[in-house]
Amino acid sequence: MPSVIRQFTALSLLILAVRPDGELLDLKCQPTVGIVAQTTDIRCQYKDNGDTNIVGVFLKKSTEENSIFQMYGNKIYGDKRFTLENPRNGPSLKITDTMFSDEGNYDYRVVTDRGEQTIRLSITVTANYSAPVTSTWPETLINGGPADLYCNATEGYPAGYIHWFDKTGTNWTINSVLRKVPKDTNGRKSVALSSKLTFKSINKDLEPFICIVFNSKHVQDGKSTIKSPIFSPEDPEKNVLEPDTTKIIAGGMVIGSLIVGLLFALLFFRRKRSFHDQRRSSAQPFLTDYAKTAEDDPENP
Rank of each mutant, 00 (worst) to 15 (best):
N49S: 12
D102M: 02
T83Q: 06
T96F: 07
D107M: 07
R81T: 06
I123Y: 02
R114V: 08
S135C: 15
Y106I: 08
L141F: 08
G115R: 02
K94C: 11
I95K: 00
D97Y: 02
K75V: 12
Y157L: 13
L84E: 05
Y106E: 03
Y106H: 03
P87H: 03
R114Y: 10
D148W: 12
A127Q: 06
W137M: 15
N74C: 05
T126S: 08
V133F: 15
E155V: 10
I95S: 00
D79Q: 05
V57A: 01
Y106A: 05
T154W: 05
S92P: 01
K94M: 07
S62E: 11
T83S: 05
Y77D: 10
L149Y: 04
A131W: 13
D148Q: 13
M99D: 05
N128I: 11
Q117K: 12
N89F: 15
K75T: 09
S67Q: 07
N152A: 15
V110Q: 00
T96P: 03
I119Y: 02
Q45P: 10
Y157T: 13
I123C: 02
S130F: 09
K60E: 01
L59A: 15
N66T: 10
I54W: 04
A127V: 11
Y129M: 12
T140N: 15
R120N: 10
P87E: 05
D97I: 09
K61T: 08
D79H: 01
G50I: 12
G156N: 12
N143V: 12
G90Q: 08
L149R: 03
S130E: 15
D51E: 09
I119P: 00
E103S: 04
Q45W: 03
K75W: 05
G104S: 11
I76D: 04
N53V: 14
K47T: 15
I68A: 03
N49Q: 10
M71K: 02
D79A: 05
V133E: 14
N89V: 12
R109V: 09
G145S: 06
G144K: 06
V55Y: 07
Q117S: 15
Y106R: 02
W137R: 13
Q70E: 05
G104V: 08
R114S: 03
E85I: 09
G145H: 03
E116S: 12
